[in-house]
Design a binder for these strands. Structure first.
Length: 326
RNA sequence: GGGGGGGUGCCCGAGUGGCCAAAGGGAGCAGACUGUAAAUCUGUCGGCGCAGCCUACGGAGGUUCAAAUCCUCCCCCCCCCA
């Protein structure tokens, strides 16, 4: 028994059924779901980003879903800033906090005491991105090698996105980018039970492939509506700019090509399904690396049954990690 | 029936005598990841008892020291004429 309760983190690849298990579990805990999904955060794309259905949201309160305007751009640190108070509040009020979602970094940001580098003037980033286009990633790499060799070595010469981030921090703050190791430390802000839902790879892929056509159909409507709200310049710009915010959602670019008449439906389905499978694979990599997660295979199991199992686990406290325990 | 084009590794596709287990892309697999993370990047990618060997470029023969590449016959696909 764990009288203090705990944070329950429910993770897993897209398509395993985190949402339905989360709803069942929230019902049993008489708590709400704190979503941990970098794309469901955005408003206006419930189908594209696979948000919980209106029925699910009516049954259980879901926090941090559809709260960001699609023009905006969220971050792991911003997520931590909004998710942590919710977690703390639930823990104090109900003894439990339920965090459900597939974004590994956001999960760590919410649940672990991560030492996040500060935000910087967006203008600095803009300039670095521009420089990357003009001079290539190699130029950024060379500069980072000078300013923070360890960071450069870790990031490599081709990863423009992360080179930009590291450089903007080093250049504007004077602080090093490298040197932190707490991302993978088994450290938590509260007692935490991490559960990873999985499925045999083939079955997971079958589910993803089966649901994709519907996502394209529904997502196309959402993308159309979104584009209608843009001026033609904005719309053209969006096609060229580096992916950010909702545009970095799997399927957004592909669906945009489909909506613009530049590619067919079947081709779009194939691309999006493949991208989703790859994403699921990366999520599984996170889960493996996380190490602390109790893995539950949900094959042939009803969400309620899985929720019961997780509840029992939570009540036993057996796999619940103390904040500084290994 | 006549003329033309083509069949390459899981898929698409380059390769026209040796430097070819075969460019490139996709898929698949593994990994990295600290204010863009559903992003971005890396590695791997025929098999094996792996400094070598085996199997492989539609099939069967042949030419050659050497063939995915040349010749013969056969099978299949596409286009045009009939």
């Amino acid at each position: 028994m764990n009288p203090g309760g705990a944070v329950i983190g429910l993770l897993g690849p897209t398509g395993v059924g985190k949402t339905s298990v989360g709803v069942e579990l929230a019902g049993r805990l008489r708590a709400r779901v704190i979503s941990c999904d970098s794309m469901q955060l955005y408003r206006g794309f419930p189908i594209l980003t696979n948000q919980p259905t209106p029925e699910e949201r009516a049954a259980v309160t879901h926090e941090l879903v559809g709260i960001v305007e699609p023009g905006g751009c969220f971050s792991a640190a911003q997520y931590a800033a909004v998710a942590r108070p919710l977690i703390d509040e639930d823990l104090a009020r109900w003894g439990w906090a339920l965090v459900v979602g597939g974004t590994g970094l956001y999960f760590r940001a919410a649940v672990a005491p991560l030492d996040m580098a500060p935000a910087v003037d967006p203008e600095v980033r803009r300039r670095l991105e521009q420089r990357a286009v003009q001079q290539g990633a190699a130029a950024l790499y060379a500069e980072l090698s000078r300013l923070d060799p360890e960071a450069a070595a870790a990031i490599g010469p081709h990863n423009t996105r992360r080179l930009v981030r590291a450089l903007e921090v080093v250049v504007s703050g004077g602080t090093a980018w490298s040197g932190r190791g707490d991302l993978w430390e088994p450290a938590y802000r509260h007692p935490t039970l991490t559960v990873g839902l999985t499925l045999e790879r083939e079955e997971l892929y079958r589910r993803i492939d089966a649901r994709t056509p519907g996502i394209i159909v529904g997502g196309a409507e959402e993308v159309r509506r979104h584009l209608e709200g843009l001026t033609s310049e904005e719309s053209a710009e969006e096609r060229e700019a580096p992916r950010a915010g909702i545009e970095s959602a799997i399927g957004y670019r592909e669906i945009r090509r489909y909506v613009d008449g530049r590619q067919g439906f079947d081709e779009t389905v194939t691309q999006v399904a493949a991208a989703t499978r790859r994403y699921a694979r990366r999520q599984l990599t996170w889960l493996r690396k996380l190490g602390d997660a109790v893995i539950i295979d949900v094959h042939d199991r009803a969400p309620g049954e899985v929720a019961d199992q997780i509840l029992a686990l939570a009540l036993s406290g057996e796999h619940t990690k103390e904040p500084r325990q290994g």
